[in-house]
Amino acid sequence: MTGPLDGTLMGRHDALLLDLDGVVYEDDHPVAGAVAAIEAVRAAGVPVRFVTNNASRTPAQVADRLRRLGVPAEPEEVLGSAQAAAHLLAGRDDVPDGASVGVVGGEGLLAALRDVGLDPALARDLDAAPSALVQGFSPDLGWLDLAAGTRWVREGVLWVATNLDLTYPSSLGIAPGNGLMVHAVATAAGRRPDAVAGKPLPHLFRTAAEAAAARSPLVVGDRLDTDLAGAVAAGHTGALVLTGVHGVDDALAAEVDERPHVLLRDLGELVDPAALARVDERTAVLRQAWADSGATPEARERLDRSLGT
């Protein structure tokens, strides 16, 4: 029995787990080819889940944003580091129900903490030390937020970072990510976060795969250190798409625990039968380059040719 995805990369998998920033969209613009590819996957009856380290929006806001861009999405299909951080705290004995939690971040993080029965407030608005502090990305963060976070971290409160992404793909180009903001607080406070909730830890990907009832999901992301490392840790096939942070040279030089199984020019190659042979060729080139312990000029030339660059 044949199906619409037979002979494509996506035809080898039973769910699609997508990062968002740099993969599906940049700011308020869809990445070229992304909408059509996701529509094709959904039309074939394959579950799609959106797995993001960006903690600035709620799942409902993310789903609404995706729909505005032409991608059908429901809040329950969105899994983010804000939810992972909230559940991490809610599961701790030293953070009781209703405990005060300081936030260096935005509404997405505040809402996630409320959803698990905690009492969040922006760190800059707190007069008394909270039971814990959570830090996540928000484009509205300012010096006062970082200064307030530093105050509570220096006081010794439990400190959880949603993620440590150093960069963030935007319409302005590669911009500072949550990891740099966490580093600023860590440097000022003289200590590191007590825990990190999101990618590259495997929890988000495993939860997404379970929710999609998938045995062989495909993870697609634009970062080796979060998306691909998380896929490897979760035991899933990982594809690096070249529309965001990391590129060909990064893939060739990737560490063992961050190596992509697949290299994609864009999401359109997921559902294009004509692209499958090129994708398989790239896999072979990458594996040989890693075995040779070097990104040789020949390997780069073959990949560039396969990518049409």
Results as ranks from 00 to 15, higher is better:
V71G: 04
F137Q: 08
R154Q: 03
D127C: 14
F137W: 11
L109F: 13
L66F: 00
V103S: 04
G105M: 10
R114S: 13
V101T: 11
L118R: 02
L89A: 03
V78D: 00
R67H: 07
A73M: 06
H87L: 08
D125S: 14
V78S: 04
D94A: 06
W152M: 00
V153M: 03
P96D: 05
V157M: 03
L113C: 12
P72C: 03
L79W: 06
A99Q: 11
R114F: 14
R68S: 10
V134W: 02
L144P: 11
Q83P: 04
G117I: 07
P96M: 03
R151I: 01
G156W: 14
S100F: 09
L141A: 11
D97I: 05
P75S: 05
P139E: 09
E74Q: 12
A129R: 03
L133D: 04
L109G: 09
Q83W: 05
A148R: 05
A85F: 00
D94K: 04
L79E: 06
L141Y: 09
A148V: 06
D140C: 14
D115A: 15
P75H: 13
V71S: 05
G70I: 15
R68H: 07
R67P: 01
L122E: 15
D93Q: 13
G91A: 07
P75Y: 02
Q83L: 12
L144E: 15
E74P: 11
D97V: 15
L110Y: 14
E155R: 00
A147R: 12
L122F: 13
A121Y: 05
Q135G: 05
A132L: 08
A111G: 14
G142N: 09
G108H: 08
P96Y: 04
A86F: 06
G142S: 11
H87W: 14
V116C: 10
L79D: 02
G142M: 14
A85W: 05
V116R: 01
L133N: 00
D119H: 12
A73W: 01
R114L: 12
D115C: 14
R67G: 11
P72Q: 12
W143C: 09
W143N: 08
L126V: 11
A99F: 13
R124G: 01
L113H: 03
P96W: 10
A99L: 12
D127N: 12
V78T: 04
E107D: 13
V104N: 08
G106L: 09
R114Y: 09
R151M: 02
G80M: 09
A99R: 06
P130S: 08
S100W: 13
